[in-house]
Amino acid sequence: MEKTPGKTGFSRRAFLKGSSAAAAATALATAPDVAEAHQVGTAVLAGPTVIVLTVNGKDHKVNVEPRTTLLEVLRYQLDLTGAKPVSGDGSSGASTVLVDGKPMMASTLLAVAVRGKKIETVEGRGGEKTPDAVQKAFVQYDAQQCGFCTPGFVVATRAFLDKNPKATEADIRGGLNGNICRCGTYANVIQAAIAVAKGGGNG
């Protein structure tokens, strides 16, 4: 499993591994700066806590509680409203984001649990002026109706094609099975994904 802790993360992590819980807690309590706040340790967090999340390549200081989900931070603190709250339990796929390159549901990830990981949202894939291949294909193939599920589909499609660049239609249908569209735009989503795959993953 690839691990991508913060810049100074690795040595500190190794240190914490070998130390007692109490020592780790003390070390963390005296570690106020941004780089340190990336770190993971056995300190027990309770109530509001400032943590740093790496989202779309930038570090953001955010104020969370242990119960705050990544989705809540993205939408209500960072104003990244692409990922959507739909099912609350991850079954809709609408809050799909990439965590260290893997597609996961922001609605079922605690913000404190993704410290030190690279989070990428649909906003990180470009936008109106600089759309990436998947976004272009979604526009070209009219792969959205109400659009609510679309950001989740775009991120999921990107993740799937990155891992399976030569995917067939059947592969794509299987791969995007975790995303639900209540308008039923599946046919166009699949066509868009096939077009990206045929273009070598870059449209």
């Binding site: 914490l16 591994k17 993971v40 056995t42 300190a43 309770a46 119960r67």
Partner: peptide, 19 residues
């Protein structure tokens, strides 16, 4: 969600001590 404490141990011994 009800508020809760959170801990992220890095060893099995630390995990057990937190339960």
């Amino acid at each position: 969600m009800k508020a809760f404490e959170y801990a992220q141990p890095t060893t099995q011994a630390e995990a057990l001590a937190l339960l």
